[in-house]
Design a protein around this nucleic acid. Sequence first.
DNA 1: CTAGGGTTAG
Length: 510
Amino acid sequence: MSLQTSTLNHMMKTSLREGQLNDARVYFDNNPTYRDVVSWNMMISGYVKSNQIHIARQLFDEMPERDIVSWNTLLLGLQKDKDQESTYQLYLQLQSSGLRPTSYTFSIVVSSVLGTVFNVLVPQFHAKIVSLGHHTSVYVGSALMRGYTDLGDHSALYCVFDDIVNKDMSLWNALILGYMELGLTDEAQKAFNRMPKKDVVSWTTLVDGYLKNNEVERARYIFDEMDEKNVVSWTAMITGYVGTDKCLDAIELFIQMMRLGPRPNQHTFASVLAACAKHSELLTGQQVHASLLKHGINIDIVLATAFVTMYAKCGDIEAAYCIFKEMPGKNLVSWNSILGCHARHGRGRAALDDFEKMINSGLQPNHITFINVLSACAHAGLVEEGERIFGCMGKTYGIQPEKEHYACMVDLYGKAGNLDKAKSLIECMPFEPDIVVWGALLGACGLHSDFEFGSNAANELHNLEKNHPAAYVLLSKIFGERGVWNSLTDLKQIMESKHMKKQKSGSWIG
DNA sequence: CTAGGGTTAG
């Protein structure tokens, strides 16, 4: 290596460390004769880190010779870009290039298949990794462990873990996470107890694991035992409460966090807004909004969508639509949220208009999009429009109607008074009707006081789930109108036991 | 010059 090359690389390294990608590029461009493979790799890495994968790829293609770091860096870029197709293609090209893949290579390539259909390749990667002797790497190991967790293979999960001699904390944490995701809470707890050293991530993984397995009490007990809690630990606990419908506990914990915990972040606010939305706590939601502004938290797309959902579910449609309109970038979830808002408030036309706008913006709808649009049509009595959407969802958008979509159509026909059409749709649908479907028909029967259809639907519902509240409510309406009360003596009791707590009032955010 | 762990919206 000439002196000039080492100077060039030093200058580039300094610029990159300061985040000055363009400065590094100027040094690189001005010294074509002194560049070596490391100079090229540094530039590729710089573009990968700033998510400019196209430029990284361009440099990779242009460079006169590539070493394994060049390949690994571009693989990392493609993985970060979630382009698993190209990642795998590049890995195949690497195989025929004659260069030997390293443990870096496998940790990247295995990570790229996680959560995709290519996850089935994990055992083959594993075999290859063992044959090349890379199975002792903690980086490769943690990627493989996540892969086997997704495949539901707990013994392979442990084998990979066991193969690694120098286990670090991340690897132990991956084992706990894997067991928790597979529902093996006892194994997870045992692993936690066996760990030589634990950090806040280990504790949080355990707490979150119990929450995901619906063991809320145990999660809270461990949460209280933690002596080092950070924003992630608090947020995990709050999110866990929301997920198990303990919204008031979630809000209470959030208040406690504001008083004596770490500063909440976007994740925290998104969760507590979800709690407000679920529990229709408009006042609390507004206070959260105010305190978020006070904390100077940046409202990103996720948080803005959480606000739209919260305001929509709490009935403040104006606020919901206002935030939605002002959002700079709207993604699928944002659109689904506003479509759900229209649906809840019976604004069928608005839903159809926004659905069209969403399609025109180039987004691909998913099954939730159609649930929201169809239920908006049902609420607004737009039978023909609903039929048209239902008909095209599979043909035009490749989304096959699921039970929920049929339930929307049953609701649509039912509300419009066309009980025959609703019934024949139930008969020809490719699923066994469930609670939701029968419930929709029952609702329509209640609306139109149809005793015959109604008792049939109620019977079906009763067979599927005893004491379903919807059945009681609607039967009371039908039977009540006909003066048939004797079978409903315990109705009032049931309703009282489901009584919701009243919303607290007053400000609690200082 | 390249790699891994826990928390967000429908």
